[in-house]
Design a binder for these strands. Structure first.
Lengths: 260, 260
DNA sequence: GAGTGGATTTCGCAT
DNA sequence: ATGCGAAGTCCACTC
């Protein structure tokens, strides 16, 4: 079913009309979109109260609920989807929509006293979403084209579990030294350096060979350079976008060698 | 201006009608809501591609842009508000909406080939939003009613800057010993314990009096109890909701003593 | 302007 | 189920 086959739109409706549409939307798992004057109360992990004003309520097919004000990327109140049950009732000419879930226990209650628009529909959406140049993609890119790190680098393993956590990649350089690679897709902070240092310690316990630690990132935070030097670690600049290019150009065959 | 005075709703419109409404919305900083079939491309901190499908596009008054699919709390593509410029154009019967910002440099492009609904309006929303029982509220609650921590506790200072960072509260107990209080509004992890331990060390350097450290939280993570005991720290269970009750019941006068 | 830490974070993946 | 880490995290606050 697509929007066209399922679309209902009400403009300046009575509360009772909205109530009917909302009930139908919840019972058939349709998307519900209400623009109107309301108050919102949340109780659960915290507790919040939103005084009267006009907002947008969006309830999605999985029960995700979002209340948006006129500004801001984030919803002022919300409920993530999954295991959410809804209740609709009208009292004193007001429409109350209540969403409850139990893990964690919390509820959002929206009470409308005036609705300007209400619509309900089903979205037909099979389109694939792909994201490039995540941290994982940077790792893949280095595995496919190790020269991105340095000439002669040979990956031996990746996401290898060692004592404190994970090493993004480790391998050896052209001189046979161990190389531990920690990848960050954005400006590396102190945290990344300490993480790498921990990896280094853990790995040094298991080998007598010389071990190099390389922090790979598009850039590093200001004070971090000093920490790197103090800990005898190295930094390699690498742009995530460059990695994305490598991946889109390379055939997926090569990746299969590693990720099959 | 409220929704009623500014509302335009189009159902099954032509692309050209949507184009006009979108242009008007952007030029007058109105909210724009489009439901239709589209593809979305993002480029900036990463890069993403969303194949054709029906989605909801919401552009808010501050330029925040959200593209929602049929499920999921989070938008599949987005742009936070502030310094975002928009461009609308129609080509080959398709409507392209493009949002660009420069810090960081990124852009989202949505191309609709079919629009089922499009609306534009201004929200009148002056309602205040208040969130209770945050970490700060727990702190306030203890300051207002120190018995929440333990009988006879007297707060001396709060958010006091000491060596490693901030102490949430410190004061003295009924026996005149120093008490350092670290507050977490949810399950306390090891991190909180180490933070408290650092505070303790810093404070012990400055006094010869006995110093107690108390971690206040609704609960503590599994392994953390052992760490607490090993470091000779204490744990006090305190429910954020209880704190919220204390705050709502207490007059704001008492808070003013601390927060004026 | 950059860095730091919290969030009703959400989400996914591993154990 | 639970825990841990990443995120195009966003956001508020400090330096």
């Amino acid at each position: 079913m697509s929007v066209s086959e399922s679309l209902s739109v009400l403009v300046h409706p009575e509360i009772s009309e909205v109530e009917n549409l909302a009930r139908e939307a919840f019972s058939r798992n349709k998307i519900l979109l209400i623009v109107g004057r309301c108050v919102v109360n949340y109780q659960g992990r915290a507790k919040s109260k939103l005084e009267p004003g006009e907002r947008i309520l969006l309830v999605k097919e999985d029960g995700s609920l979002l209340v948006h004000r006129s500004v801001g990327y984030e919803p002022v109140n919300w409920m993530p989807g999954g295991g959410v049950s809804f209740d609709v009732r009208s009292r004193d000419g007001r429409l109350e929509v209540r969403a409850v879930r139990h893990k964690p226990p919390e509820s959002v209650t929206i009470v409308f006293d005036l609705v300007q628009t209400c619509s309900s529909f089903v979205l037909s959406d099979l389109g694939e979403f792909s994201l490039f140049a995540s941290e994982e993609d940077m790792q893949k890119a280095i595995l496919v084209k190790p020269d991105l790190l340095e000439e002669g680098f040979k990956p031996v393993s990746f996401e290898k579990k060692v004592e404190p956590g994970f090493v993004d990649i480790y391998g050896e350089d052209r001189n046979g030294r161990f190389v531990v690679v920690e990848i960050k897709r954005k400006t590396a902070a102190k945290e990344a350096v300490f993480q790498l240092a921990k990896y280094m310690d853990a790995i040094r316990l298991r080998t007598s060979r010389e071990v190099r630690g390389v922090l790979v990132a598009p850039s590093i935070a200001k004070g971090v350079q000093r920490t790197l030097v103090a800990l005898k670690l190295e930094y390699k600049h690498l742009d995530p976008k460059k990695c994305a290019e490598v991946l889109t150009r390379s055939s997926s065959r090569k990746l299969a060698e590693y990720f099959a």
